[in-house]
């Protein structure tokens, strides 16, 4: 008889799951975890009465998998630039209504009409960042300018790098003068011997928190996201951030409205709220990435603006990732192979 008791239990659980939702007063937001501060969400709800249901992901591909499965209807999503490009190409985004976004003008021009959305029809940039080198200047006295310096044999077992095949492959491409989106079996074969040599010197791979090993002193150099480097700089000024001399990859996380969104007006209201200078500055306070909002930057403290990882002083052109399609699998194969034979 026992197992039959399960049914009423499941029924109770089902009631939890389908708690009534007033559709027009709620916004289903699918965004990176811990990227939109709670204070911002609360402020929006207070002002508009719209409740924000915040669901999180921790990688662009994870987001894509769940979005495409279609289990939940999202009103607003936060893809990285190259995923947004793929979504645009597959006609999975809804065009923006600029009449509802008066604050859009606050954005710096260099963050609009970017390669992932050249017509600037579908996406609003949220935060940007770069991939660069962190140097613990207390331990490393020589200048480290780029990938070649970083991966020299004298720093063997003193390096942490992102556990991300594409970032490392791009680093190797830069040293060979290959374009960062030019991923083919032939270019990957060229990168292989370089990466093989690099991998011998790497102590650990960590995408989630490379700052841990650097702060602990277990490694002295790192190839990390600029956000990580900015946190390290705030913690201790001995951690310098360097944009690699061979070339720099910049990423932009954007916001977009997916097809199937049931509350587009709330999505626009939230987008415009995020573009407000005071709100955007609040986000910068919590997350030290590069803020694309020019008006918001004026509200930042001199110390925030002086953080070399958040606002690197460079006039070089920074490259962005393009959507790879199926050749992403080639990188993963190479990466696994390199790790396995190391």
């Amino acid at each position: 008889m026992k197992p039959i008791r399960l049914l009423p239990l499941l029924a109770i659980a089902a009631v939890f799951a389908t708690a009534a939702r007033a559709a027009d007063k709620e916004l289903n937001l699918y965004a990176w975890s811990e990227y939109i501060p709670q204070t911002v969400l609360d402020g929006f709800t207070k002002e508009t009465g719209i409740k924000v249901n915040y669901e999180t992901f921790s990688s662009g591909e994870e987001m894509l998998a769940k979005l495409l499965a279609g289990g939940t209807r999202y009103d607003l999503i936060q893809p990285p630039d190259y995923v947004a490009e793929a979504l645009i190409k597959n006609k999975l985004l809804v065009p923006l209504d600029y009449k509802k976004l008066p604050n859009f003008k606050n954005l710096l021009p260099e963050f609009t009409k970017m390669p992932h959305d050249p017509a600037q029809k579908f996406t609003v940039p949220y935060m940007a960042g770069t991939v660069g080198i962190v140097v613990n200047t207390e331990k490393i006295k020589e200048p480290v300018a780029g990938y070649k310096d970083l991966f020299s044999a004298r720093y063997k077992d003193r390096i942490v790098v992102l556990d991300d095949g594409r970032e490392l492959v791009v680093g190797a491409f830069y040293t060979q003068g290959i374009g960062l989106n030019d991923i083919t079996p032939a270019t990957l074969e060229k990168a292989r011997p370089i990466l093989t040599a690099w991998f011998k010197n790497i102590k650990l791979f960590d995408s989630d928190s490379p700052k841990t090993a650097l702060l602990n002193g277990d490694v002295d150099l790192g190839l990390v996201w600029s956000g990580e480097a900015a946190i390290l700089w705030n913690e201790n000024k001995k951690f310098h951030y360097v944009l690699p001399s061979e070339g720099v990859h910049m990423f932009v996380d954007v916001l977009a409205i997916p097809k199937g969104s049931r509350n587009q007006s709330a999505a626009h209201a939230f987008l415009d709220y995020l573009l407000r200078p005071d709100v955007s500055a609040l986000i910068s306070e919590e997350f030290p990435y590069t803020n694309p909002n020019g008006e918001a930057r004026k509200l930042l403290t001199p110390e925030q603006l002086a953080n070399p990882a958040s606002y690197p002083k460079t006039d070089r052109k920074l490259d962005t990732f393009r959507h790879l399609g199926t050749s992403g699998a080639l990188i993963d194969e190479l990466f696994t192979d390199l790790k396995n034979t190391k």
């Binding site: 591909e61 894509l64 556990d163 960590d206 199926t326 992403g328 699998a329 993963d332 790790k339 396995n340």
Partner: peptide
């Protein structure tokens, strides 16, 4: 990955990455 430094792949990594990184 966390304690060993992710220097060598496990079978779990390989399968996981097909869904999460390689899009395959």
């Amino acid at each position: 990955d966390l304690m060993g430094g992710a220097r060598v792949p496990m079978i779990g990594n390989v399968i996981h990455n097909q869904f999460i990184k390689a899009g395959n």
